[in-house]
Each structure stands twice: as structure tokens, then as C-alpha cells.
């Protein structure tokens, strides 16, 4: 079967690519677009290391076909820092030692940003259930949850 032509927007930049009909968004990001910040931990939507947003909706890019990006807007971890400035979540993860090996970190950050966009004042329980689709085997989640809650509080404070 012939490859499909896809026009999409990735991290705010319009781009085009060719993909196999069966190719996942994750494989296209990693193997064609050199955006390797999204990781493959399971390829079955269970670990969340490949989390991206599709028109601001949090999705596992391993469960999305690349062809589905046509006409939509994709954001990945590579688009989170703006103009060389880290996002407050990225800063907070570093301050709080909220990562150890770092393999889940991209997905955690993308998921956390999506949470705060929807819910600027999440409770601990809401953070825990929102991030339940992102596995971390190193941290026990403690410092991650704290980092998200503190960032949310600081963003609210700054907005006042």
C-alpha cells in the first residue's frame, strides 16, 4: 500500500510527512521527525511515556495512528519549554528531584501540563488519578505529585 501524506502542526510548526497506514504517531515522531522525547515503554497505552496532546487532549501517541494527525495540532515534550525558558513544571521537577532515571519524565510533564490546563487547582487525589496512566518505577510518585501541586499553587499565585 502506498504511503499516506499528512499535513499537521507539531509544537506550533506546520509540517508534512509520509507514513505507512499502520504507523503509529509515536513511531513517526521518533523515527521520522527526530522527536525522541516521547518514549516507548509498552506500545499498549499502559505506561504513558509517549504522552502527547492532540488539540489539547492528552493521548498516548503509541495508540494513535500517524495519519490521524492530519489537520490537527500535536504538542510533545519538545514544545514545552518556550524560547529556551523552561515551563514552571519543568523547573519544579528539577527543584524537587521529581525524576530519577528520567524515562517517564517527558510523559509525566506532558500529562501534568494537560491537567493544569483543565484544572488549575487540583487536589492531591485529582493529581494522583490524572497521572494514574503514567507509570514511574523510580520515585514512588511522591515528589512528582508534590511538584505538580506546588506548581499549580505558584501559577495561581502569579496570576493574582
Amino acid at each position: 500500500m502506498a504511503k499516506l501524506h499528512v499535513s499537521t502542526t507539531v509544537n506550533g510548526e506546520p509540517l508534512e510527512f509520509l507514513c505507512e497506514p499502520y504507523e503509529t504517531m509515536l513511531d513517526t515522531l521518533r523515527n521520522q521527525l527526530a522527536l525522541t522525547g516521547s518514549k516507548e515503554g509498552c506500545a499498549s497505552g499502559d505506561c504513558g511515556a509517549c504522552s502527547i496532546t492532540l488539540d489539547d487532549r492528552l493521548v498516548c501517541s503509541c495508540l494513535m495512528l500517524a495519519a490521524e494527525a492530519e489537520g490537527h495540532e500535536i504538542r510533545t515534550i519538545e514544545g514545552m519549554a518556550r524560547g529556551g525558558r523552561l515551563h514552571p513544571l519543568q523547573e519544579k521537577f528539577l527543584e524537587q528531584a521529581a525524576l530519577q532515571c528520567g524515562i517517564c519524565t517527558s510523559g509525566m510533564l506532558v500529562a501534568s501540563e494537560a491537567l493544569l490546563a483543565k484544572n488549575p487547582e487540583p487536589s492531591e487525589e485529582e493529581v494522583r488519578f490524572w497521572l494514574a496512566g503514567n507509570l514511574c518505577r523510580c520515585t514512588g510518585y511522591d515528589k512528582i505529585v508534590r511538584a505538580v501541586l506546588e506548581t499549580a499553587a505558584e501559577i495561581r499565585e502569579a496570576a493574582q
Binding site: 521518533r30 523515527n31 522527536l35 525522541t36 522525547g37 516521547s38 518514549k39 516507548e40 510533545t76 515534550i77 519538545e78 514545552m80 519549554a81 523552561l86 519543568q90 521537577f93 528539577l94 527543584e95 528531584a97 525524576l99 528520567g102 524515562i103 519524565t105 517527558s106 510533564l109
Partner: peptide, 22 residues
């Protein structure tokens, strides 16, 4: 509680893990 030397690479998706090299 200093900031780790490899930290920025890991929160921006730049850190090269085993499957990230071609």
C-alpha cells in the same frame, strides 16, 4: 538539594536513552 547536571536534558526530552540514537 542542588539541580542535577543532566536535569534540563531530562525535562525537555533531549536526554538520549538507548533507543533514541540513529
Amino acid at each position: 538539594r542542588t539541580i542535577r547536571p543532566d536535569g534540563v536534558d531530562k525535562v525537555t526530552g533531549r536526554a538520549a536513552f538507548a533507543a533514541d540514537t540513529a
